Amino acid sequence: MTSFRDLHYLETPLLLPNAWDVGSALAFAAAGYTAIGTTSFGIAASTGMPDGGRSSKAATAALAMQLTRLPVHVTTDIEDGYSDDPAEVADYVAELAEIGVAGVNMEDSLNGRLVDPSALAAKVAEVKNRCPDMFVNARIDNYWFKESAYVDAVLRRAGTYAHAGADGIFVPGTMTPEDIQRIAAGIALPVNVLAHPSLTVPALGKLGVRRVSSGSLPYRAAIDAAVRAVEALRDGGVPPTATSYWDMQARLEVFSRAI
């Protein structure tokens, strides 16, 4: 199997589906994806918590422990590392590395605001010192939180994180094609973006993007589909088509036997 790192250097961008539980990950694996990420929003929401605020730490580690039994690369969204202390962040990532996690996302914001880039840089450096093989995707939240949302500000932060040892740069948020192209051209590392509302994955690849994450989109779409399914019944319609109970049960039985 192609290494997780090498998946970022193929001709086409790596399309990374983000799972929130075992069932969603099994479905992505069955669909042929060789790398699966977690979504902090989906994990937090499924436990009744809002995203952010370091609420997904325990649930993310627990899910990663399960997902690393699948024959896929697993990368985890760990918010800002769940601590201000770089050593504590590195401890957490080392635990993930020990169970087979291939990559982590770490963001440069907390409670909806950007933090000083030196804070994330210190965490990146400590993680790479402890876990040199871990693919560290440094997330830059300027566009996500609409704070200093311009290309030069992103590039300055990206340079800081690259110098600290980051392996990739993740810039979520809605951007124009021109901004995406300038950001990708200005960063030597693989650039990751979220699925774009108007640009296809091939179009993003032509702009220089190397990884496209689904983020929380599958979780949110699943919730919408669940509501529509029940509304169809309420309104006198027929049930929507779906993967059968027996097929999903079979996946879970195979998975459970590997425990």
Rank of each mutant, 00 (worst) to 15 (best):
Y92Q: 13
V93C: 02
A94P: 04
A94K: 11
E95N: 15
E95M: 15
A97G: 09
A97L: 09
A97S: 14
E98Y: 13
G100Q: 00
V101C: 01
V101K: 01
A102W: 06
G103D: 03
V104K: 04
V104I: 14
M106L: 05
M106G: 00
D108R: 09
D108A: 06
G112C: 03
L114R: 05
L114V: 03
L114I: 00
V115N: 08
D116P: 07
D116L: 11
S118N: 11
L120E: 02
L120R: 10
L120I: 09
A121Y: 08
K123M: 07
V124C: 00
A125F: 08
N129M: 03
P132T: 10
M134F: 04
M134C: 12
N137S: 05
N137Q: 02
A138V: 00
R139C: 07
R139P: 11
I140A: 11
N142A: 03
W144P: 06
W144T: 00
W144L: 15
F145A: 01
E147D: 15
S148W: 12
S148Q: 15
A149R: 01
A149F: 12
Y150G: 04
Y150W: 14
V151D: 01
D152A: 13
D152Q: 15
D152M: 12
V154L: 07
L155V: 04
R156W: 14
R157A: 10
R157F: 12
R157P: 11
R157W: 11
A158D: 09
G159L: 09
G159P: 12
G159E: 04
A162M: 13
H163I: 04
G165S: 07
D167S: 05
D167L: 08
D167G: 15
